[in-house]
C-alpha cells in the first residue's frame, strides 16, 4: 500500500500540466528551417515553403529576399551562391535568366525560387514574412531603396493579406512602413524598444530568442507591438521561446514547434 501511495504521489509530483500556447503563431524559418537535418528540402526553396504551409496548424513562413541585377526578387539566405548552389557569385550581381538556371546542390536539386512563385501558396489566414536584404553583397553597399520598392510594387505585395516585411535597416524600416506592414529586426533589445516606441507605424519586433527575456517580451507587447522570436532549433528552444509568450515564434523545426504549442 505504501509503495502504491508512493508511486501515485510521485506520479502527481512529476506530472505537469502543459502550458497552453494556442494563441502563439508558429512560423517556419526559411520554410522548414535553416540547415536542419530533418528538413527534407533546402531552405528558401519552393518545396520547403510549400511543405511548411501544408502542416495543419502552421501559421506561415519566413523567407529571405534578395534582389538581382534586373530587379527581380529571389529567395536566398546566404550572401554568396557558392557552396549551396551550382553557381558562384552573389544574387545581386546576376541577371534574372542566369538565376533561373541555378539549382541547390542538395539531395533534391531544388531550383532557386522567385518570391513571385510563393506569394499565392499560403491561405488567407497564414502569414508570409519577407526578410528583406538591403545589402548588395557584391558591391558591399546598401541597395537603392527606390529600386527595391519598385520590385515589391511589381508583385503588388501590399494587396496580399498577411504579408509582412522584416527589415534590419532603420531608415529602410521607416520608409517601407509607409506602404507595408514592417517588423524591425535587431539583436539589441534596448535599441529596438527605443526605435519601436519612436515609430508608431512599425508593426513590431523580430529578435533572436536568446537575446530577450519574458519580461522584455512583455515590455514590447505593452507598447502595442507584436513580437516574433527566432533561432530555435530544438524542442527545448521552442519551449523556452513559447514560455516567453510572444506573438509568434519563427522556428527552424516546425514539426517540433507545432507539437510544443499543441
Amino acid at each position: 500500500m505504501r509503495l502504491i501511495s508512493f508511486i501515485l504521489i510521485s506520479f502527481l509530483f512529476f506530472s505537469c500540466d502543459k502550458e497552453s500556447f494556442k494563441n502563439i503563431d508558429i512560423i517556419g524559418h526559411a520554410g522548414m528551417g535553416l540547415s536542419m537535418q530533418n528538413s527534407i528540402y533546402h531552405d528558401n526553396s519552393f518545396e520547403a515553403v510549400n511543405l511548411a504551409l501544408l502542416f495543419q496548424g502552421s501559421n506561415g513562413v519566413e523567407v529571405d529576399v534578395q534582389m538581382d541585377k534586373k530587379g527581380c526578387l529571389w529567395l536566398f539566405h546566404n550572401d554568396n551562391l557558392e557552396g549551396e548552389t551550382t553557381e558562384n557569385g552573389c544574387i545581386n550581381d546576376k541577371q534574372t535568366d542566369e538565376l533561373e538556371q541555378v539549382k541547390y546542390t542538395s539531395l533534391h536539386n531544388e531550383k532557386l525560387t522567385k518570391l513571385q512563385q510563393i506569394l499565392l501558396l499560403k491561405d488567407s489566414t497564414q502569414k508570409l514574412f519577407l526578410d528583406i536584404r538591403d545589402m548588395n553583397a557584391f558591391s558591399n553597399s546598401i541597395i537603392d531603396i527606390n529600386i527595391f520598392k519598385s520590385a515589391l510594387a511589381t508583385l503588388e505585395i501590399d494587396n496580399i493579406k498577411n504579408v509582412f516585411l522584416i527589415v534590419s535597416n532603420q531608415s529602410w524600416a521607416i520608409n517601407l512602413a509607409q506602404t507595408y506592414s514592417v517588423f524591425y529586426c535587431s539583436d539589441n533589445f534596448e535599441l529596438s524598444k527605443m526605435f519601436l516606441s519612436q515609430n508608431t507605424n512599425i508593426s513590431g519586433l523580430v529578435i533572436r530568442n536568446k537575446y530577450i527575456s519574458k519580461k522584455q517580451v512583455a515590455e514590447i507587447t505593452n507598447l502595442n507591438k507584436r513580437i516574433y522570436l527566432f533561432d530555435m532549433r530544438s524542442p527545448k528552444g521552442n519551449r523556452q521561446a513559447l514560455n516567453k509568450n510572444p506573438t509568434g515564434i519563427i522556428s527552424d523545426d516546425i514539426r517540433a514547434a507545432l507539437i510544443e504549442r499543441n
Binding site: 495543419q56 496548424g57 514539426r255 507545432l258 507539437i259 499543441n262
Partner: peptide
C-alpha cells in the same frame, strides 16, 4: 508515427 493535429 506521431500526432501533431493529424498523424504524421
Amino acid at each position: 508515427s506521431y500526432r501533431i493535429q493529424n498523424t504524421i
